[in-house]
Design a protein around this nucleic acid. Structure first.
Lengths: 193, 193, 193, 193
DNA sequence: TATGAATGAGTATTCATTCAT
DNA sequence: TATGAATGAATACTCATTCAT
């Protein structure tokens, strides 16, 4: 008996990411995913219930991963809120650094992330939490609306990562990383008045 | 009396926006758009070449409109760069205020916008131009990377508008409007140093 | 605009009967039915919701037809119960005389006839009714269990028609017709004792 | 202790009968049969060439069994033709008495029985033989067409057994048994002329 | 023998687009 | 212009069968 292989599941996962990135969810073909993974079409269904669930698994994995690392970051005692926020930006950017296809999938198919997606919610909640912590400790502007602010930052970073995934030369990650941190902290105005 | 055909085209355009917003481009059905517009299925093809072009027309119209108003704003002599930036935020928000469906379509189907979309490019270029103007006049931080900065702001606003379109109560436009302007100018840090 | 044609629906109905008879419901292909009807595959779905409903329509039509003619027969005043029973046998046999394929479908796919099929139930009920009438008028053996008897006759006739449809030479309808009537009335024993 | 493999084959045979009865041949799944038999999917193929052959084996077993018992019955010297016919009815009914699933399979999948099925043919031939014997000995009506008559009886009994298998309460075997014998011998007319 | 993971052929159904009227 | 019936390409998913272990 051939034993069920975690490697095979990984191959399918990866091939699906590439296929979803290149063609989008609706134009993606299971047969092409299978081919990309080096398995037969039917084998995809041994590891994933159907096409939809395959996408959901990918998105869930990403958000779970991010939420987990965020959790660790947020609970650190040796960093203040601003440093944690910078760490969060780094986390998100690092997650996609060596998998541009994954970045494209996450951004483009984000609306498939059912709001119920608990890991995504957790991720957002941790962002708000750090903002609140910053306000409480006097580091951040107390007039900030934490929900709007966190979503604004999230949207901006998401968009930049998408641009990078499509044109890594034009939007290198380091430039993005630096610029986002600068904007976050100081805004766009001249520093000294 | 037969209605003028310009009216019929408008009806189809509007019905398509609603259909694309509700079901997304790939799940949208031409037959449902026709029904929503009160015309026969085949009639859609008298006004639009095909489904893809119908979406492209909608997106192009939006960007053309925005680019045009931006053009007028940017060339005003009575405003400085910061005031123009704030005006741009208002423009974008106002454009969608009374058509949440349109906001959803623009945000969700944005990746369908071939980069070639000239009006979209024009829109982005004007944003960069104002940033450069601000730097040149000493109002804005000279270390800003205008391309990254403008895209970051665009991404953030886009995301917030999407949230509003889905939960107008939770993310009211006025709150968004105020918060974005604040963040742009001052960042998140405590104002006094 | 091309107008929806009753003729086309008939062609599909007929082609489906042939296909179901030749290959059985589960092996029947919609594409072959369409080809047989001289229409495109998709057109089948303009007239019938799906494959299952196509079969159900055929069976319902047959039973409705039979039930209707049975109704007329049973209510005749000029025939006694035995003559009506003979008429029923004739009805069933005549229904299939010029459509052996239809006979095969009805017999083979009979289990698809959901018991709820009201026309089939009506058909059976009329059979029982005539038996009861015959008993009441003293023509038929009062010890008959009408439900078992009617089902027995129905099963026997059904089986013979199936044999005829597959080997018309070996089981000619006239022979079947004569023999069934004889058996019904007299049983198999020698007539005089 | 490993169970004897004959036992395993029997388990599969039985599980297949249940599966075919419940879902019909085409909807039956080998995997479900295997599960029902407590073996792995692949093991089914150690005992049976394929799905089709599994059904054929079941049907062949039934007919072989019946043919064999019929053979013994027909050659008895102590019974006349009518008694033998009654015995045949009993045989068929007894065969299914404690296995309604088997009855359903035999009835529903009967058309899968290629006419070539030798045991089935033998079964029919023995029926015809008894009828002829009855005619020769003056017990049965000499005008009977033995082939049509035997098939009529077979069809009627088959149908009644099917009804019993689905609704044992409504069509109890004893009632069926009694009624069929009565009808065979006397027909439906009032006994006295 | 026994397993159950792997294979891949096969098909109903949808719907954008066309076209006869 | 306007209609909506007709077209037919395109594809996710199932499951009988095989085969590596």
């Amino acid at each position: 008996m051939r034993t069920r292989s975690g490697q095979k599941e990984q191959n399918i996962w990866q091939a699906a990411v590439r296929e979803f990135a290149r063609h989008g969810y609706h134009q993606a073909k299971i047969s092409r995913i299978a081919e990309g993974a080096g398995v037969a079409t039917g084998s995809v269904y041994l590891y994933f219930k159907n096409k939809k669930q395959l996408l959901e698994k990918i998105l869930a994995d990403v958000w779970q991963n991010l939420a987990q690392e965020m959790e660790a970051l947020v609970t650190r005692k040796d960093l203040n809120a601003v440093e944690k926020l910078e760490g969060m930006v780094d986390l998100v950017i690092d997650m996609f650094t060596d998998n541009p296809s994954l970045a494209i999938v996450v951004v483009n198919e984000h609306s498939q992330t059912r709001i119920a997606q608990p890991y995504y919610e957790r991720f957002l909640a941790l962002g708000r939490q750090v903002l609140e912590e910053g306000i409480a400790t006097g580091l951040l502007n107390p007039h900030l609306q934490v929900d709007v602010t966190s979503q604004f930052i999230f949207g901006g970073v998401r968009h930049l990562i998408h641009l990078w995934a499509q044109s890594p030369r034009q939007y290198p990650l380091n430039k993005i990383r630096r610029e986002v941190k600068l904007l976050l902290k100081r805004g766009i105005l001249t520093e000294v008045q």
